[in-house]
Simulated assay, not measured.
Amino acid sequence: MENALITGATQGIGRSIAISFAKQGISMAICSRNVKDLELLKKELLSINPKIQVFAYTADCSQKIELLEYARLAQQHLGFIKIIVNNVGMFTPLSILDDADDAFMQNINTNLMPAYELYRFFGKAMMTERSGHIFNICSIAAKEPIVNAGIYSVTKAALYSLSSIMKLEMQAYGVKVTAVLPGSTLTNSWAGTAVPPERFVLPEDIAAAVLNAYNMSKGANVDEIIIKPVLGQL
């Protein structure tokens, strides 16, 4: 059975990807800081597909020790992790000049560090198995910086660059790496908005694209996925 690991799995894009994986019969490790949300998602995934395994672990992925313990236990419970979805992230709508003193490291430790550390943790096993697919959930802000999201744009650009390096290091071993760059997506970042849903990309759209990329033939790698609202960015 194929096994996936998702960071930040209980909301938005991560949640939609987890549901898509469950429907396909992919077992997975999921994590969140919220115990209640985590248990509810685990029950939902198992109700979708009782044949899969779901390992749920409470972790703050911005803390390296907690992140690596999650990775270790996921591998222990499920076995070889074939798919990694680096989804966890944070967004604070501020210019860099208005950032809090700790904003830089918070954003680095949430938007960039987890992908780097999970790559180092699982990468060599993927090389040995000559199998695997890493999805890095970046943002269109990685290519089109947003004035009111300065450090977010910087860290997502760094994640996009890291994704490119991963692909170059892994391609000789048949391990796939895909950067996902969503535009304005209807997640909790837009909670309370009066803008109608049809002005957004939906999390389900991102999940469908990820699953489609994963299901391609062994010789095909989708380098990057860009999905933006049809009527333009918000």
Score class of each variant (00 low, 15 high):
residue 29 A to P: 10
residue 25 G to A: 08
residue 219 G to I: 15
residue 169 E to W: 12
residue 52 I to R: 13
residue 210 V to T: 03
residue 166 M to A: 08
residue 80 F to Q: 12
residue 102 D to I: 08
residue 82 K to S: 12
residue 17 I to C: 03
residue 93 P to C: 07
residue 57 Y to T: 00
residue 32 S to G: 05
residue 222 V to P: 09
residue 53 Q to F: 15
residue 195 V to M: 02
residue 38 L to V: 09
residue 44 E to G: 05
residue 145 P to M: 01
residue 91 F to S: 13
residue 222 V to I: 12
residue 1 M to W: 08
residue 119 Y to C: 14
residue 103 A to K: 04
residue 205 D to H: 05
residue 174 G to D: 04
residue 184 S to E: 01
residue 214 Y to A: 07
residue 189 S to P: 11
residue 43 K to E: 11
residue 57 Y to S: 04
residue 183 G to E: 03
residue 128 T to V: 15
residue 161 S to V: 10
residue 166 M to H: 14
residue 196 P to D: 02
residue 158 A to M: 06
residue 175 V to I: 13
residue 124 K to G: 05
residue 58 T to Q: 15
residue 147 V to Q: 15
residue 163 S to K: 09
residue 128 T to R: 14
residue 215 N to E: 14
residue 126 M to N: 05
residue 218 K to R: 02
residue 121 F to T: 00
residue 22 A to P: 11
residue 104 F to D: 09
residue 101 D to M: 06
residue 153 S to W: 04
residue 29 A to R: 02
residue 91 F to Q: 15
residue 165 I to K: 09
residue 168 L to T: 08
residue 179 A to I: 07
residue 9 A to I: 14
residue 101 D to Q: 12
residue 164 S to F: 03
residue 37 D to N: 15
residue 86 N to W: 07
residue 53 Q to S: 15
residue 58 T to R: 12
residue 155 T to Y: 04
residue 219 G to Q: 06
residue 232 G to T: 02
residue 157 A to T: 03
residue 137 I to T: 05
residue 38 L to D: 13
residue 164 S to H: 09
residue 33 R to C: 01
residue 211 L to S: 15
residue 203 P to L: 09
residue 191 A to M: 15
residue 137 I to C: 04
residue 118 L to N: 12
residue 230 V to P: 12
residue 149 A to M: 11
residue 39 E to M: 06
residue 215 N to W: 13
residue 104 F to S: 11
residue 26 I to P: 11
residue 66 E to C: 07
residue 59 A to H: 06
residue 56 A to R: 08
residue 135 F to M: 01
residue 32 S to D: 10
residue 141 A to V: 03
residue 115 A to T: 00
residue 94 L to V: 09
residue 72 R to D: 05
residue 226 I to T: 07
residue 61 C to Y: 05
residue 119 Y to I: 14
residue 63 Q to F: 07
residue 201 V to G: 01
residue 5 L to M: 14
